[in-house]
Amino acid sequence: MVMRQQTRRFPLPEQCDPPQSPRETLPTMYDLPSEDPEEPGLPDEFHDYQPQLLRETFQPPAYQPDRFFVATDMNLYYTLDHPLWHKRPDWFAVLGVSRLYDNHDLRMSYVLWQELTPPYLAVELLSPSTEQEDLGKTQRTSDEPPTKWTVYEQILRIPYYAVFSRHTDNVRFFELTGCQYREIDPAEERLWLPEAALGLGVWSGMYEGMERKWLRFYDDRGVWIPTRTESERQRAEQERQRAEQERQRAEQAQQQAEQERQRAERERQRAEQAQQQAGQERQRAEQAQQRAEQLAAQLRALGIEPEP
């Protein structure tokens, strides 16, 4: 049984009396830009397909599909002191929130003072231009936005953080312990996420026509969560196997019916043979009686009375 942790809430600012709702006093998803025009384009297809694989395989069994949210390359607004400051995780997941904004709309961004629940897991895909930022190795002044590392660790306090390099196929996992991230080195390049009841690990295989190492999720048995294509392939294979089993059962039933027909034919033939034998025995008995009667008649003609 999965024990759920208490959901951490993003603090709201003090308000006047009577208080107004956050949607009346603070910028919402609709007020904040969903894209950063100054951000350079993503370097390769890997930044499209890797988050897609994470999205497909992130299926936490303790949560209904409408009670968690995952996003790729989405603006994440995190501070009321600077409402326009944001980060764009390559991929992140939030547990215990509605999949839809305000339960009815697709999100354009994720605004912490509106959502109240920070991400549970963030994943960054390292590249030469972003590695220093993603690992918190760049220096910032007090009037500049903090690094992703600082935001994830000190402001959002995201419990788990993973960075993965397509160039080295190296993954690094970090767990929030106390007030800072602690790097962990699990065996077989895997990280267990207890509240999600899923693990994140490095998988070697074919995805979207590319054979390489990928990050993807696995279940509590260590089995990789299937993608939609894999699930469809498995269902097709299961249907093929069921059809083959039905064909074999039909053939077996046909063979059994043929065997029963042959047994019935043999029984009929034995019954006919027994009937013929009985008829032959009756004829022999009749012939024997006739011969006895003829012999008795001949004896009587000679004046000899046959013994009874």
Rank of each mutant, 00 (worst) to 15 (best):
G96Y: 12
D169K: 15
P194H: 05
L135H: 00
S231G: 07
H82S: 12
F164A: 02
L121D: 00
R9A: 13
A285H: 01
L95F: 13
E24P: 06
Q5E: 13
P226T: 10
A187F: 03
A162D: 01
F217L: 05
R67A: 10
T72V: 15
R228Q: 13
Q52S: 14
Q254L: 07
Q290R: 11
R190Y: 08
W149M: 03
T138F: 00
Y30P: 00
E183C: 04
F10D: 02
S129T: 10
S231H: 07
I184H: 04
V151K: 01
Y207I: 08
A253P: 04
Q277C: 01
E14Y: 09
H167Y: 15
A122K: 03
Q255T: 14
L135N: 07
L176R: 00
L84M: 15
Q50C: 15
I225K: 08
L295K: 11
M1A: 03
Q20V: 13
L299S: 04
Y181K: 04
L100V: 14
E251A: 14
E232M: 10
N170L: 12
R221Q: 08
A278F: 04
R190W: 01
R212V: 09
A236L: 14
F217Q: 00
V123W: 00
R228D: 15
E239S: 08
K87V: 12
V94M: 10
T79G: 10
P22I: 07
A271C: 02
L26P: 09
D90M: 03
W224D: 08
L121W: 00
Q15H: 06
Q256H: 05
T229I: 13
S165E: 04
T150F: 05
L302T: 13
N170I: 14
M1L: 10
N103V: 15
Q50I: 11
R291K: 09
P194I: 06
T57K: 02
E232G: 02
D31V: 14
N170D: 15
Q259P: 03
R235I: 11
D90L: 10
D169Q: 13
R242S: 07
L176K: 01
T150C: 02
R88D: 11
E124Q: 04
E39H: 05
T25A: 02
P128R: 01
S34I: 02
D48M: 12
I184T: 11
Q290E: 13
Q180D: 00
G96N: 04
R270M: 00
P194W: 11
A278V: 02
Q255C: 05
Q180R: 02
H47I: 11
P61A: 06
Y181E: 05
R88E: 14
E258A: 14
S109C: 14
D81V: 15
E251F: 09
L302R: 15
D219W: 07
E293Y: 10
G41T: 13
G41S: 12
E144V: 07
I184Q: 05
G205K: 04
V171P: 00
V223M: 12
W192A: 06
V171W: 00
Q283T: 07
A264K: 08
Y110K: 04
Q273F: 00
Q245L: 05
W203D: 06
Y63P: 03
Q287I: 02
A93I: 05
R212W: 11
Q154N: 12
S127R: 08
E267Y: 05
S98I: 04
Q290T: 14
G41K: 04
D48N: 10
A301N: 12
A296H: 06
R247L: 12
